[in-house]
């Protein structure tokens, strides 16, 4: 089992490398002319050439890639084209902002959604199941900004309970931070809870089709026990997968929510960089998002390996 996990970890690192190739290729090799885009109308052949040299674009792509990657691995993400500041200094505080918001939402959404999903599966066909299914479907369908705007309207503009913008700053108190981020958190919780609930329910019901579940019913066990003791343990690995998939969503889906609430996170930062076509910023942010995503996928796969009784207790060995 350890070898399997190690293999998966190596694969994760390999994927990360491939991601770096794609990000680099996507930003630099695609036929867009970065220098032209920056200078726009005022471009003259001389100024273009000068800017290209300044940006290092006259060097072969492969060499630039190697330099970029080695720099990146040492924590040097280059300098912003727009402001000239080091990217790392701009990026990390925003990264932590995004992570805090995602964590705030995740801590609430995941247990809530998994619990409700298992409950819906146990009470399948009943009122709770139907209502939760339709409600979850609606929340999955609604765009984040629609929910966000509704919440702003009701909980902020009309009632004045919470601030409409998620202004956070260095050194603000815990209470103030929670107050500022509760609205975006609520939006994220609603969307992810709905998603996880639906997928958890489907996963558990998928297991409920198995003959061993029938065996459990034929022992005279009551429904709740069958679902919790016999179905859920076998659904654990896919549920972990669902959760990790949705945490990954949280971290990227946060982009839209950050835009609604003007939250100073990595997502909004990246969107701004894209509008300004600030290449090093986009590269760095994309790499960070990619790395988090790859990491979460890897954790899910490793958890699935670790949860598999066949791998934990191999054949031929006494327990």
């Amino acid at each position: 089992m350890l070898t399997l996990i190690a293999k998966r970890a190596v694969l994760g690192v390999f994927t990360l490398w491939l991601v770096s190739v794609l990000v680099f290729a996507g930003t630099e090799i695609l036929p867009g002319d970065v220098a032209g885009a920056i200078l726009g109308q005022s471009a003259t052949p001389e100024s273009l050439a000068r800017l290209r040299a300044e940006l290092g674009l006259d060097v072969p792509a492969l060499q630039r890639y190697v330099e970029w990657l080695t720099g990146f691995l040492q924590g040097d993400m280059g300098r912003s084209m727009a402001s000239g500041q080091p990217v790392a200094g701009l990026l990390w505080p925003r990264f932590w902002n995004t992570m805090s918001l995602a964590a705030y939402a995740g801590v609430i959404a995941v247990p809530l959604a998994v619990g409700l999903g298992i409950m819906a599966a146990a009470l399948r066909g009943g009122i709770f199941d139907r209502v939760s299914n339709v409600a979850a479907l609606a929340f999955v369908s609604l765009p984040e900004y629609f929910l966000g705007l509704l919440l702003v309207l009701w909980l902020s503009v009309k009632t004045g309970w919470l601030p409409s913008l998620a202004d956070t700053y260095e050194g603000m108190g815990m209470a103030a931070w929670f107050r500022a981020t509760t609205l975006p958190m609520l939006v994220l919780v609603m969307v992810t809870t709905a998603q996880i609930l639906r997928m958890t329910r489907t996963t558990v019901l998928g297991v409920m089709d198995q003959p061993y579940v029938e065996t459990a019913y034929l022992k005279g066990l009551r429904n709740g026990r069958v679902v919790l003791r016999h179905a859920t343990p076998n659904a654990a690995a896919p549920i972990v997968n669902v959760v990790s998939f949705n945490i990954a969503y949280l971290i990227t889906g946060v982009v839209l929510v950050e835009a609604v609430f003007n939250y100073n996170g990595l997502g909004r930062f990246m969107v701004d960089a894209v509008s300004r076509r600030d290449l090093p910023l986009v590269q760095a942010a994309a790499m960070i998002f990619g790395a988090v995503y790859v990491f979460l996928n890897m954790v899910a796969d490793i958890a699935a390996i670790a949860l598999n009784p066949r791998l934990r207790h191999p054949r031929g060995k006494e327990a």
Binding site: Y212, G220, H230, P233
Partner: peptide
Amino acid sequence: AVRGARIAYVAQSAAAAFNPA
């Protein structure tokens, strides 16, 4: 209350009828 206690079932495929977990 009766099921499993007074009357019990043996399935065709024990491999599928036992919970792998």
